[in-house]
Design a protein around this nucleic acid. Structure first.
Lengths: 204, 204
DNA sequence: CGTCTCTTTTACCAGACGGTCAAATATTTG
DNA sequence: CAAATATTTGACCGTCTGGTAAAAGAGACG
């Protein structure tokens, strides 16, 4: 029932969300304009507002769906796996997320930079609980001597910071490395070796 | 001659730059308004424009002075010092810069996030040469077996990413850690241990 | 005191921006 | 086909914003 219409609407909405992601990630919420998003989506501004009630509504929907996919790599941590490989796998998945979805990464970074006015509660509730849960797993691994001991929270921060850096600060990385080098391949090799050294249990 | 007037002007200009830093770092260039900066500076908007020709002029001056102080810790690397302590000292200086000047850190991060439209050339020239020079020093240390071998460029990226993360993503760090924990003290301890493990040469 | 310069304010402008409205045009449905 | 509905558009509005013009203070100096 009314499925054809729904499909048309879904297409348009997806089209608008993609345009919004493009513009919001490049210019930030305040820097982005409805005209710019409409142009990127190939629609007129009033037409765009026929599908979304406001500029903020587009932004909010982008943020909401983003948060889910953004935390997937962390959720994929397997408490029953081999600790070192699990952690290195997490690093690799997170880095590839930055490589394949740099717009999402920058959108998120911009929101946090501005003080996360729209997702403060999400950070303090959902994110915090999720991180705490996985920190418990990591702590257990460390206590069992299967990972080098350190503060699990700050360990996770270091993974976030290092992987997102390559997306969020891409122009800086590119400027310093020059155009010839393969940033992402080098990053994956470097981060793998880096975290292997940080995480590997001292003995055995 | 005319030094009194100059002193008054310098005070006003400093006042405006501080207000600009406050507002620009919180809202980004496009999000900041002249009225907001004027209010933060305790001046009227036309009075503000008596000292600076435009909004962009304030932003540019902030960026220029920022870049200098931001690279000071790197310049302080001593090629004749003890490698591990030199690198750990760099990490500590950089982290304290993030702690003591979070507004500057966020201003810079925002500019890079938006593609660094105003400082692209600086990144590709000055910054790149400075980094290359210090990478040569680090490479020499590694070749001499005094530091664990890795890619010096990515090693520097990792220091930047980890230290700036605590300033640029402060709301996220605070939300995850909760209000009681001393973020900065923990960060310094964690990063010191972290990089000691990454950098320490394997044998003796 | 009067003049000259430096500083500050009041009033204002032109353009951009988020959003609305009513009419026009497709599209579906009976 | 016609009626009903969904979609698109052009014209428009109030507000915000960067910036300007001109005149009113405020000291400095003779």
């Amino acid at each position: 029932m009314a499925n054809d219409e729904t499909r048309i609407q879904k297409n348009r909405r997806a089209q608008i969300l993609d345009a919004g992601l493009e513009v919001f990630s490049a210019d930030g919420f305040r820097g982005a304009t409805l005209d710019g998003i409409a142009r990127a989506a190939g629609l007129s501004k009033p037409n765009l507002l026929y599908y979304f009630p406001s500029k903020e509504a587009i932004y909010r929907e982008l943020l909401d769906t983003l948060l889910d996919t953004w935390l997937d790599p962390l959720r994929a941590l397997d408490p029953d796996g081999e600790p070192l490989e699990e952690m290195l796998g997490y690093v690799r998945r997170k880095l590839r997320l930055s490589r394949d979805y740099p717009r999402e990464s920058r959108l998120f970074a911009g929101e946090i930079l501005r003080g996360a006015p729209l997702i403060e509660t999400v950070l303090g509730e959902e994110l915090r609980h999720l991180v705490d849960a996985h920190c418990a797993v990591i702590s257990a691994w460390m206590a069992a001597g299967r990972l080098a001991p350190s503060d699990p929270h700050h360990l996770i921060f270091s993974i976030w910071a290092l992987t997102q850096h390559y997306a969020d600060f891409e122009v800086q990385v590119a400027a310093v490395l020059g155009p010839e080098r393969d940033r992402w391949a080098e990053a994956e090799a470097h981060l793998t070796a880096h975290f292997r050294r940080v995480l590997a249990a001292p003995s055995v």
